[in-house]
Design a protein around this nucleic acid. Structure first.
Lengths: 172, 172
DNA sequence: AATGAAATCGACCAGCA
DNA sequence: TGCTGGTCGATTTCATT
């Protein structure tokens, strides 16, 4: 009754140690992991495979620097829709489909969607905002310009507190 | 004069095709890439190495599902600071250091920082917000709750338009 | 679930266009 | 400089405990 096993595959300290390491660098030498965790290479591989199959590791991706591709402008846009009823899903999908948009959240509060986009110049920025405003049902938008990305890169385990870690481990 | 070569390593269509593929799955078989791009395994490897060394590929990471670790609550917080002068950098670092926080942006506009955090329950959420408010110099905060993550996962190339791609290619 | 041996895949070296 | 082919080493897989 106190276990909320949604996707909760029960993990131990070893699993978390592996996760923390591979989310930092998935090309890690199995020998290094085997070394620090006192486990055979095959055991590490076995656990990694299980973590992937169970969906704990959703994918393993190469992170491409946006600046290297000229995407130097990051814009965060708050989007409000006219009618709260029904269309929300469709509008979310429409926002997600716009070129340059790479994060879309449906939020509870004064604004309905929060959208993160990257573009190369002002012209593309204007075009992007026009596309957002042009979506049927979108009422009002407010865009802010990001001066500096202080923390980025979606690490999950690395940002967890001791309390959060314990919560995962106490799921036996 | 029209080339703004900041980090701009000039890339061709083949490089972009490789990037688009490895940012989706970095464990791609070299044979598959070699097959679809009509290039030898070694050539693909050569280009990948170059892309990593030049910083276009910053890292290669395993993506861990936050839900699998019980992090079901995503909160987006707008933070305003008291004095615009000086302390901004320090406050940004302080925000980035809080457990649960995984994205921090310094923005231009009515609000100074935008912070994304993940927690497991209300208690952790309250604790997190208390820590943010407790930072010296933080004036006002406004948190909104994310109901649904419609688009996520920091793909760079996948979200680019044809125009953006062309801009990268016309950098010879 | 973890171990060790066999097949497979990726990393490096030298030569070539 | 960028690509080819072959080789060595590491990794993935399988059968066994």
């Amino acid at each position: 009754m106190q276990s909320e096993d949604r996707d909760a595959v029960d993990l131990d300290e070893t699993d978390l140690a592996i996760l923390e390491r591979v989310e930092r660098d998935s090309d890690v030498n199995l020998e290094e992991l085997s070394d620090t965790l006192d486990l055979s290479r095959s055991a590490i591989h076995y656990r990694l495979k299980k973590l992937k199959n169970s969906g704990v590791i959703t994918s393993t991706s190469a992170d491409v620097d946006p600046l290297a591709l000229g995407l130097s402008l990051l814009i965060i846009t708050e989007v409000s829709v006219a009618h709260e009823s029904g269309y929300a899903e469709d509008i979310g999908e429409a926002l997600a489909g716009i070129d340059g948009v790479y994060q879309v959240y449906y939020t509870l509060g004064d604004t309905d969607f929060i959208v993160h986009s990257r573009v190369q110049n002002r012209a593309q920025m204007n075009e992007l905002i026009d596309k957002i405003v042009g979506i049927d049902g979108v009422n009002e938008t407010s865009s802010t310009f990001v001066m500096q990305e202080i923390k980025t890169g979606d690490r999950t385990v690395a940002n967890m507190s001791e309390t959060m870690i314990d919560d995962v481990l106490d799921d036996s």
